[in-house]
Design a protein around this nucleic acid. Sequence first.
DNA 1: GTCCAGGTTTTTA
DNA 2: TAAAAACATGGA
Length: 280
Amino acid sequence: MPIIVKGEKMSKTQIPLLFDLEETLDCGQAFRWAPLDDEHTIWEGVAGGRYLKLEQLPDSLIFHCSKTDFDNFWHHYFDLSEDYEAKRAYLASLSPALKEATEFAPGIRILNQDPWEATSSFIISQNNHIPRIKGIISRLCESFGELFENRHYSFPSAEVIAALGEEELSVIRAGFRHRYILSAADYFANGKIKIERIKEMPIEDARHELMQICGVGPKVAECTLLFGFHKTEGFPMDTWMKKAMSTLFPDKQPADFGKDAGLAQQYIFHYSRMHPELFK
DNA sequence: GTCCAGGTTTTTA
DNA sequence: TAAAAACATGGA
C-alpha cells in the first residue's frame, strides 16, 4: 500500500505498507476519526492539534497534508516505520484462531496517541458503549478544546481540564466519570505522571504508576500503555477479550503472543466485536 | 420501557 | 479478603 502525501506542494512519499484506514481508525483504539463517504474510503480526524483527511484508493493511500506535517507528526502517529507484515505473519503462525483474526482485518496498525488523550478517553470508555464514548469525547473537545480549523477542535490539554470543577465538566455528560477525568488531569497537568519515565519503565511498574489515578484500573491502565505509551506488549482485557480468550484461546495467555501482544489483542478484539454470534 | 455498555470504586458480609 | 452493589447516561 504505497503512501502518497498530497500537500501544498504535491510532494510524494512512496512507502509500501500494510495499512487499511477503516480497520485502523474504526477498531476501537481511537475515537476521533470518522468516514466522510458511504464507502468509508475517505476519513478525517484530529490528533496532536492537527486536522487530517486521508483517502484509501485501490492501490495507494493519500494523506492530504503538508510534507512537513507528514514527516513531523503523522508518520509517527500511524507507526509507519514498523513492519506490520512481519508482525502479522508472526502472530498468524502462533495459532489457527489468531491467523483467522489477522486475516479478517490485516490492515490494523497500532496508533501512537497522546498519553493524556488515551488515558482520559479510556476512562470515559468504562462501562460505556463506543457510540456514546465518541459523543462524550466530542463534547469534551467542543467545550474545552481549541477551535483551530473549520469546525474542528483540538483535544483539550490536561492543564485546561485540571482547572475545571466537576460542575463545569458535567456539560460533557460523562456521569460518574467526571471526577475520574479530573483526577487524571491533575496527575498529567501537575507532573505527577512523568511521561518520559513511564515510557522507559518496565510495564509492570508503569501499570502501578497509572493506577494511582482514581478511575484508572487494570484495563484502562493497559489501554493507556498500549495506545498512549506504545507499550506494544500491553494486552487490555475487557469484557470482549475475556470472552474471546476463554472461547478461542483456552490454552493461551497474553504473554504467549510476545512483544506485539497488543497488536494480537487488537486483531482479536476487532474480530470478536464483528462476530458476536461466536459468544452467544 | 428495559437492558446494558472496551470498568472501577465503594460497600457489605 | 472477596463478592456484590453502586455509579450516570443514553444508544439499542
